[in-house]
Design a protein around this nucleic acid. Structure first.
Ligand SMILES: [Zn+2]
Ligand SMILES: [Zn+2]
Ligand SMILES: [Zn+2]
Ligand SMILES: [Zn+2]
Lengths: 132, 132
DNA sequence: TCAATTGCGTTATGCTATAACGTGTGCAAT
DNA sequence: ATTGCACACGTTATAGCATAACGCAATTGA
């Protein structure tokens, strides 16, 4: 999925996510866009839905938050499963990919004749900087 | 974490999960336990919190639901990262483990000096029986 | 022009999860 | 026995996350 042309709302939401230090919840995004005329959650969720489709934003299932893709231009859909390490102390997120992990999971999936649609890999813990 | 002795509420919640065909939300569990005297979400969430500690229940982050461990007696904490394949059609969940995946992820984590606390691997898609 | 599609705004609602307070019970130290 | 603590429990209220349903406006393509 390639981004055709972002609408105003999509661009505003994406901009907020790109400039953020870490992942943001939909309601946090909403608050940051009140001055630009955002009034309701749906404005954010509808924009996010498209940005997820375009592959320029990722959803972190384990913390109900969203983050801009760390590999712009590479088209995350093409480089396999995306994994995230989430620091529960500072909120920083590291996005990475591991082809061997993809390979093992897809092997298992094949062996079960399971048809994967969306795969989530999220490691929550403490980043190096935050380590005690 | 080994289960010392379940309280009444914990046993009721666990029983519901064990007898269920698939994962259940906290509120669905609540509804199923109204006849046993459950009135409020906290009764369910508090029981779930303990059951998760004991390792006899897993939380599926991507669908905000809970499922009884498919490998009773093995102590899921001991056999590494737990992964789930979730059929979005019939709701069935397959719990599995792959040491190579663990190994790769833990290798990455070490290389980043990231300290993992809890890792989520969830594959949403369609199971063999539900395939078109 | 007409119909279909898409984005948008608004209101209302539903689902998920926790805060805060108080009660009762079991158990150990004094 | 009394005191203090830990823990489970019950209840009410609130916070946080997400979508349904309606109507309007702009775009596009037949
Ligand atoms: Zn990405
Ligand atoms: Zn950190
Ligand atoms: Zn398990
Ligand atoms: Zn199925």
């Amino acid at each position: 999925m390639n981004a055709p042309q972002m609408t105003r709302n999509q661009a505003l939401v994406f901009d907020v996510l790109e400039k953020a230090e870490g992942p943001l919840s939909a309601y946090t995004i909403l608050d940051k866009l009140r001055d630009q005329g955002f009034r309701a959650p749906l404005q954010v969720y509808r924009a996010l839905e498209k940005l997820l489709e375009y592959g320029v934003v990722h959803r972190l299932e384990s913390i109900n938050s969203f983050v801009a893709c760390a590999h712009p231009g590479e088209d995350c859909h093409s480089h396999g499963i995306v994994a995230f390490a989430i620091c529960e102390s500072c909120g920083q997120v590291i996005e990475f990919h591991d082809h061997e992990v993809d390979h093992r999971l897809m092997g298992w999936v094949r062996s079960q004749k399971f048809k994967p649609a969306k795969t989530t890999i999220e490691i929550r813990g403490t980043c190096e900087a935050c380590a005690a």
